[in-house]
């Protein structure tokens, strides 16, 4: 009986503890158009994804600081990052970034993910892109990035 009681208490404590940690560690994926419309979690990190815009990668020579733009085929968001990039990161390819929106509307990424197979794109990125490619283009909005009507 004692053992069972202890086990129940233990499991209850563990459950509360892990559920709280769960909330702290959830990271939402936000469409770039929504980021630009101001619809994103303000106080915490989130994920964005899309295609790296052709010709948008800017690097200060010899430094690890990098800037590029990501598009969901409707709006573009500037992203800054310092560090080592994944092998498949390149212009025109799909990318996912973790981080938060800094001042001046630049997404400050602390992690960049590009998938290891070129034929493969993260489902949420594919979905985000498909929304705008299939003609459901959203109207131009004012905001830190820029939106283009296709």
């Amino acid at each position: 009986m004692l053992a069972v009681g202890l086990a129940v208490v233990g499991v209850a404590i563990a459950a509360t503890f892990t559920l709280r940690a769960f909330q702290d560690n959830m990271m939402f994926f936000v469409d770039i158009s929504d980021v630009i419309a101001g619809d994103y979690p303000k106080q915490r990190n989130f994920r964005i994804g899309g295609l790296v815009v052709d010709g948008s990668i800017e690097r200060q020579q010899g430094s690890m600081d990098l800037r590029f733009r990501v598009t969901d085929m409707n709006c573009e968001l500037p992203v800054s990052y310092t560090g080592v990039l994944p092998d498949l990161f390149r212009e025109g390819q799909g990318v996912v970034a973790h981080g938060r929106l800094g001042d001046e509307g630049v997404f400050v990424a602390d992690k960049i993910l590009a998938k290891h197979d070129e034929n493969y794109m993260a489902p949420e990125v594919a979905e985000s892109l498909a929304k705008h490619v299939e003609g459901k283009t959203q109207p131009l909005r004012d905001g830190p990035g820029e939106c283009v009507t296709l």
Binding site: F17, T18, A21, M26, M27, F28
Partner: peptide, 15 residues
Amino acid sequence: KISIGPPWFEVAFLV
């Protein structure tokens, strides 16, 4: 769409 990061697993798994 959410993702659960490794930090959660690292803490939860230790319990």
